[in-house]
Simulated assay, not measured.
Amino acid sequence: MLMMDRAGWHMTDKLVVPANITIMVLPPRSPELNPVENVWQFMRDNWLSNRVFESYDQIIAMCCHAWNKLISQPWKIMSIGLRRWAHGF
């Protein structure tokens, strides 16, 4: 099973889904059900918000820096993405 949000590229008829994968689409307007939304929010809150970027290249560099900083902390990713209701049984 693959859980996906309703992004346009996930919902297109052009998406080829292998026979051994079942897609479960999240309800519309439910970012709280998608753990990666909390990861993006954490990155914005801690490293990317309230800044003025001088160029597109600086935006890319800062996003890469934030991503690399986050992936060096796997325990942080687990704590951000953990859903008690999903692991309580």
Rank of each mutant, 00 (worst) to 15 (best):
C64D: 05
R44P: 00
L33R: 12
D13I: 07
V39E: 05
V16R: 14
F53C: 02
L70W: 03
L33Y: 01
Y56F: 15
K69L: 08
N50E: 08
L26G: 01
Q41T: 06
S49T: 13
M24T: 14
N50R: 15
W40C: 12
A19P: 04
N46R: 09
V17H: 00
S49W: 15
L82D: 11
P27M: 02
E32P: 03
M3W: 02
K14E: 13
M62V: 05
M3K: 10
D13Y: 06
S55N: 12
A86I: 09
W40M: 06
Q73M: 13
S79R: 08
Q58P: 07
V16T: 09
M78C: 14
L2D: 07
K14I: 04
W67T: 06
F42N: 10
W40G: 09
L82Q: 12
D13P: 07
L15A: 11
V16M: 12
P74T: 03
I77E: 08
P31F: 14
V25T: 13
M78W: 10
R83Q: 15
T22A: 15
Q41A: 11
P35F: 05
R29S: 06
R6N: 13
W47F: 10
R6P: 04
S79G: 12
M43W: 06
H87S: 13
M78I: 13
Y56V: 08
S72D: 11
Q73F: 15
M11H: 03
L2I: 03
S49C: 09
L82S: 15
V25Y: 09
V17A: 00
R44N: 02
D13E: 08
F89S: 10
L26I: 02
A66L: 00
W40D: 09
G88I: 14
